[in-house]
Write a protein that binds this DNA or RNA. Sequence first.
DNA 1: CTCCTAAGTCATCAATTGATGTCATCGAAT
DNA 2: ATTCGATGACATCAATTGATGACTTAGGAG
Lengths: 198, 198
Amino acid sequence: MKAERIPEKTTGAPPGRRRDAGRSRELLLDAATELFAERGFERTTTRDIGERAGVDAALIARYFGGKTQLYIAVMQADSGDNAPADLLDEDRQRALLGRTPHRGPGPVVRAALVPHDDPVVQDASREQLYARLVTPLSERFAREGVPKPQLRAEVAVAAFTGILLARGSGALTELAAADPDELLDVVRDLLDAAAAPG
Amino acid sequence: MKAERIPEKTTGAPPGRRRDAGRSRELLLDAATELFAERGFERTTTRDIGERAGVDAALIARYFGGKTQLYIAVMQADSGDNAPADLLDEDRQRALLGRTPHRGPGPVVRAALVPHDDPVVQDASREQLYARLVTPLSERFAREGVPKPQLRAEVAVAAFTGILLARGSGALTELAAADPDELLDVVRDLLDAAAAPG
DNA sequence: CTCCTAAGTCATCAATTGATGTCATCGAAT
DNA sequence: ATTCGATGACATCAATTGATGACTTAGGAG
């Protein structure tokens, strides 16, 4: 699996050094991000991550401290580029729905439905989840005078996450295969309804 | 489920026989039903099941053939009392939402979001899922002239299952603690929206 | 009461998995 | 070229978990 045979020796800047801790770290982080999104934390083994990254799995412990801390690192990276997100914004919906058909929700969103063993991780992801999705939506509902803003926000997040998870799981065939824009129409109907009681 | 007592050695009375294969089988089945709903298949160990049932875990292999077949038995029992269910019916929603606060979806519904390792189990639960929930809803949509009936039905099931899962996971506090009837109002808004294209 | 089968208990196995330690090797600085 | 710290490969450990088989015992048949 050491297929990463990049330019042997280029100029001064070494983009393809055979030994590069930073690069190995990145490869592990990327592989873990994918696998955690596809299968979740429990069903992803460190050996799987190492194999997909093309890096020895033992380096997970060295560079991150362990599988759990690697998950936290993935979560932090995921949080980095996603600021507080309005779940009712169409662009945001499209971004969360994602382009890749066979991939579940990211670590933070996933935390809404699948609790984590380690309470530290659970609290951290929950905090992110509320900060980035639930609370903004709840405040928006409150601003608009929607009756039970907090509950409605949580229900909307749960429903949306369920759709993401189902799309990744493949159990619901048409949902898994649906074109993103086509799916977006239906999802918008659902989420708009959360904002419009009665 | 049957709320039978735990065997008491002191009573030599017939109803609490100390050795009763049928009873032990039932106890294991009930305990497994609870635990699978609470934690899902993977995170439930045979030892957990045995402990909650008050029965030696080794009997799982004897009476069911193994953990996987026990799951199938739970699924069959779950399918038994639930005929094809209209997800838009309020009583049905209430039944699926359940009374017990801290409990996730049953094995069949759960299969919509969490794929199973064993393809045999996956197919069986998927078949049940479609027969009992997706297809009836899809046909109803088609009957009512809703545009993309199949996709809308799958999205509705995914959203509803997400809510069930979130309620069981406890990550979304207000959703987990909400009164069933209160929650039902919000859920109805969502599901009705699936039937009414924007 | 005596037996004998079904029921239950227990020890243990094999596979998986996360983690750790050791050792070889690369590669940059001198 | 030499050296030495950083990097990675590999073997292995300990814990978990599903499963199996041998042994013990209850409890009804005769």
